[in-house]
């Protein structure tokens, strides 16, 4: 962590800025006032969902690289529901959107699960490749059948009906998504720690052989886990649109949330409560980085470089944590 900050300083320094200034700016930008805090939480929300989605599969020693695609599919599913049932009242429409997003996300997790359990195809590749399918399919919809006829030049859908939107609190862009995310994290934590299902998942993650020996139906549970993981990411996609973007549009859906979710789950070591805090840290990094662009006049590239650097060192630090440095006298 310290290394990360030092390396980050270096990035700032070669760009001709005082690193301490920069860090202060970042912190203020992320937490300094009500507005920046709310923005941090807005960024945290989708990360929370993708992080939780990946953390679930991580417990069974599977890698779901597909949270990004599932996030897109969730957003798409929600948009479909918003268009199909546009004249329903909010208390019907919002749950419908959620349901639709959850189903879309789960279905996107299904093919890799089937390939994994039937043909032993590596889930890392299949989930990753399905991301591109999802993203390009959404692209197609936005350029084609779902394009808002009033703005033919823009690849975006019409605004959701008001009944499909989540309330934004305190005049900020923050919606109930963050609360749902935190509740979901707690629910998952209880599931892992207190239920037979969580125990089963843990045994599968530890040793497939032991699980089979104990009469646990490993394949069935792997399919379930990948689908639930997809559903969580999908729900994140729905909340992103309903709570923030208000319409499906290119570029606005995901800021690589699916991929960042992988890092979050890894750093949180699969613990859903830890995911909350790591997601918050990542959210702050994003917002703080943005504010650097504005206040210190850094280019976007510099900020991304800094973010990448921090992640690299945090991840490397994780690996080193397992070893102790020892000086050997010659």
């Amino acid at each position: 962590m310290l290394f990360a900050l030092i390396a980050g300083s270096f990035v700032f320094w070669i760009n001709g800025a005082n690193p301490f200034e920069a860090y202060k700016e970042m912190f203020v930008g992320a937490f300094g006032d009500g507005y920046s805090l709310s923005e941090t939480l807005v960024q945290t929300t989708p990360l929370l969902f993708t992080g939780l989605a990946v953390s679930l599969t991580l417990r069974t020693l599977l890698w779901n690289i597909g949270a990004e695609g599932q996030f897109f599919m969730g957003a798409m599913g929600a948009t479909w529901a918003a268009q199909a049932f546009s004249n329903q009242p909010p208390w019907i429409l919002i749950p419908l959107l959620m349901l639709s997003a959850v189903v879309a996300g789960a279905l996107w997790g299904l093919p890799p699960a089937i390939l994994k359990t039937r043909l032993q195809v590596n889930e890392i590749l299949t989930t990753l490749l399905l991301n591109y399918v999802a993203i390009f399919y959404v692209n197609y919809l936005l350029y084609g059948p779902w394009k808002d006829p009033r703005y033919p030049g823009f690849p975006q859908t019409p605004r959701y009906p008001d009944a499909a939107l989540l309330h934004q609190y305190f005049n900020t862009r923050l919606s109930m998504g963050i609360i749902i995310g935190v509740i979901l994290a707690i629910v998952l934590y209880v599931l892992y720690k207190k239920t037979g299902w969580g125990y089963k998942i843990q045994v599968i993650g530890q040793s497939r052989k032991t699980a089979t020996y104990a009469g646990i139906r490993v394949n069935r549970n792997i399919v379930r886990v990948l689908m639930i993981s997809g559903a969580i990411a999908g729900l994140g996609g729905m909340l992103q649109i309903s709570g923030l973007q208000h319409k499906l549009r290119l570029g606005g859906i995901s800021n690589n949330y699916g991929y960042t979710g992988i890092i979050i789950a890894f750093l949180a070591n699969g613990n859903p409560l830890a995911v909350i805090f790591v997601a918050l840290f990542m959210g702050a990094l994003l917002v703080g980085g943005d504010s650097l662009q504005m206040t210190m006049g850094f280019g976007k590239g510099v900020v991304h470089m800094f973010e990448g650097m921090v992640l690299f060192f945090v991840l490397a630090g994780e690996a080193f944590k397992r070893y102790k440095i020892q000086w050997i006298k010659k």
């Binding site: 843990q202 045994v203 052989k209 020996y213 104990a214 009469g215």
Partner: peptide, 17 residues
């Protein structure tokens, strides 16, 4: 590899079945 859950504590291996 098969008889126990190697990285977990004893309770998790005892009630496996």
């Amino acid at each position: 590899g098969m008889g126990v859950v190697p990285d977990l504590g004893m309770p998790k291996s005892m009630v496996l079945k």
